[in-house]
């Protein structure tokens, strides 16, 4: 009896702990708020927010249920760039859903590689078109226009360097629909036309707005 009683108490205790712990995790995932600038980890994803002028706030309203969720609101900013993703990227298939978005310039898979040093965008909303048109690639049911733009002796994550920006521009994604970016299609296409990549640095589903605008976004990446 004693044993049974002990086991019951223990089981109840364990259940209670699990419930409390689950609640805490949910609260922790949701409760974080980033004001203007910050980086870190939320629900297992790398997040980052940068803004200048005005104000910007990043929250993770549905991260308890959808770990890759984030929301940013901004007002009168010179510049805001924020998003969620991976500290070290890869040629992975990325899913996303943008619940709402307004006042942005682009929402893109954004990242860097080194050796060779490359800054890349795969644009799902808005536009990043710039530089030399290099053809197009079909991926995930739509066509992207590919651009290459060389930056001569310009600032980069390595410091001053001559490097290329690779830009796959679509911008036709729909609010509220699940989207997919099969990054390997883009990376292979770039490789096939001589646009080589190196070792992955960070990779995020980023939202960018500049020019004194106000706006907001709620997006989830997976």
């Amino acid at each position: 009896m004693h044993m049974i009683g002990f086991n019951l108490a223990r089981a109840l205790k364990v259940m209670l702990t699990v419930v409390i712990a689950a609640g805490c995790i949910t609260m922790a995932a949701n409760a974080q708020t980033v004001y203007n600038n910050g980086t870190g980890t939320n629900s297992g994803y790398y997040y980052s927010l940068y803004s200048s002028g005005g104000s910007a706030t990043m929250t993770f309203p549905d991260a308890g249920q959808y770990p890759g969720n984030y929301a940013i609101t901004w007002s009168g900013v010179n510049d805001v760039v924020g998003g969620k993703g991976w500290q070290t990227g890869s040629a992975q298939t990325i899913g996303y859903n943008v619940g709402y978005a307004n006042g942005y310039n682009n929402i893109s898979i954004y990242g860097w590689t080194t050796n060779p040093l490359v800054e890349y965008y795969i644009c799902e909303f808005g536009s990043v078109a710039n530089g030399t048109y290099k053809g197009s690639v079909s991926s995930d049911g739509h066509n992207y226009s590919t651009y290459e733009h060389t930056q001569y002796n310009q600032p980069s994550i390595e410091g001053t360097q001559t490097f290329n920006q690779y830009l796959d521009n679509w911008g036709g994604a729909s609010i509220g629909s699940n989207g997919t970016v099969t990054t390997s299609n883009h990376f292979n296409h770039w490789k096939n036309i001589g646009m080589n990549m190196g070792a992955f640095n960070y990779q995020i589903l980023g939202t960018e707005s500049y020019g004194g605008r106000s706006g907001s976004v709620n997006a989830t990446v997976w």
């Binding site: 410091g159 001053t160 001559t162």
Partner: peptide, 28 residues
């Protein structure tokens, strides 16, 4: 050795950077 402009990983002694010999920058 990396510089003030770049990420910390490029300041690791093992990292091998390169630049055209006539290249200049405020971090070089």
């Amino acid at each position: 050795g990396g510089g003030w402009m770049g990420d910390a990983r490029f300041t690791e002694p093992a990292y091998r950077g390169h630049l055209a010999a006539n290249g200049t920058g405020p971090d070089q």
